[in-house]
Simulated assay, not measured.
Amino acid sequence: MFRGRNMSLILFFYIMICVDWGITKSFSNHDSRIIHGHPTSRGEIEYQVSLQFALEASRESSNERTAHYCGGALIAPEWVVTAAHCTIHKDSKKLRVMVGAWDMHNKNNSKYLIDKLIIHDYDEKTKIGDIALIKLKLEGGQSAGTPLKLAPSDFDPTGQSCLITGWGHLKSHENNDPERLQEAKVLVVSPETCKKMVPTKFPLDRHGSSMICAGGSTEDACQGDSGGPLACQKDGEYLLTGIVSWGVGCATEGMPGIYTNVRNYLDWINSTMEANKSS
């Protein structure tokens, strides 16, 4: 007979946690859904990461109740790359990292604590530098899964339909989060085309190479997909090319999604992992 009151209290505390953790992102950051995508096959995307916050934040165990809020990609046995805006102002002790999951609710999913969180110099106004690295707490010699290789500096994805993956709402403005990992294809457009598509009032990097533009039709990423991978192919192999960063709405016709250009940060990624490698 007290179920209604208990559920109201749970909902209240969940909302308070979301506000505290910045889950209610502004319109310019992507939300937790792949728009007009479809479920992946089991074991197809082993590099996908779910960043989660602990609902029982006082516990240090990686097995407590958690909730998904951002994506990421495994790029080395103990390293994950994600968006800076997913990790800035966050307490890494309250974050958990789920790697290689397909069904979000499978109790056997691998979930890890964070050893180190290293955030690039990120400008919240211009959105430049929207990238962060997470070193996982692993046992000696352990690997968290199958990493996604980084695209080389000379790789040009322009004109290619690339893969985006993530969890969240299947439709805008509806709370119908999928249990299984979703995927969609988005077309990478040239910097010149992107400048014409995105109005000047939005924080597109018009003078540098820190961002990639992709989409602009019916498929898109949104909030909660933030930090997730944009994977493009070279010689039949998928490579990490972009990181979901920001956008104007979700699947807004004529407006591409904006991704951090991973190739622009290769030196920082490699030097950071080298400086913080396990002994």
Rank of each mutant, 00 (worst) to 15 (best):
G140F: 13
K201T: 14
C194H: 05
H169R: 13
K185C: 00
G168Q: 09
E139L: 11
K149Y: 06
E183K: 15
D156Q: 03
T193S: 13
E192G: 01
E139D: 14
G140E: 13
E174M: 04
K185A: 06
D156K: 08
V189C: 07
G159C: 08
H169Q: 10
E179N: 14
K149W: 00
E192A: 15
Q142R: 10
E139I: 01
P157T: 08
H169W: 09
P147G: 02
E192N: 13
S172N: 11
L170I: 12
C194F: 05
T146I: 12
I164P: 04
P157W: 05
G166F: 13
K127T: 09
P178D: 08
E192T: 14
L150W: 04
M197N: 13
I134N: 02
Q182W: 03
K185G: 07
K137I: 01
V188T: 06
L163A: 06
L170R: 12
H169T: 08
W167R: 03
P152D: 02
E179F: 07
T126E: 12
E139G: 14
I164K: 02
K196Q: 15
L148E: 00
K149R: 15
L181S: 06
K201F: 07
K195A: 13
E139R: 14
L150S: 10
L150D: 04
P178M: 04
L133Y: 01
T165V: 13
Q160P: 05
L138R: 02
A184Q: 03
L170P: 00
G141C: 05
Q142D: 08
G141P: 08
T165H: 03
I128R: 13
V186P: 06
G166S: 12
G159N: 04
S161I: 00
E183R: 14
E179H: 14
G166K: 02
V186W: 02
Q142W: 06
D154M: 11
L187D: 09
A144F: 03
L138K: 10
L187S: 12
D156Y: 12
K185S: 11
A132D: 00
T165A: 12
T200K: 15
T165F: 05
P157H: 03
S143M: 03
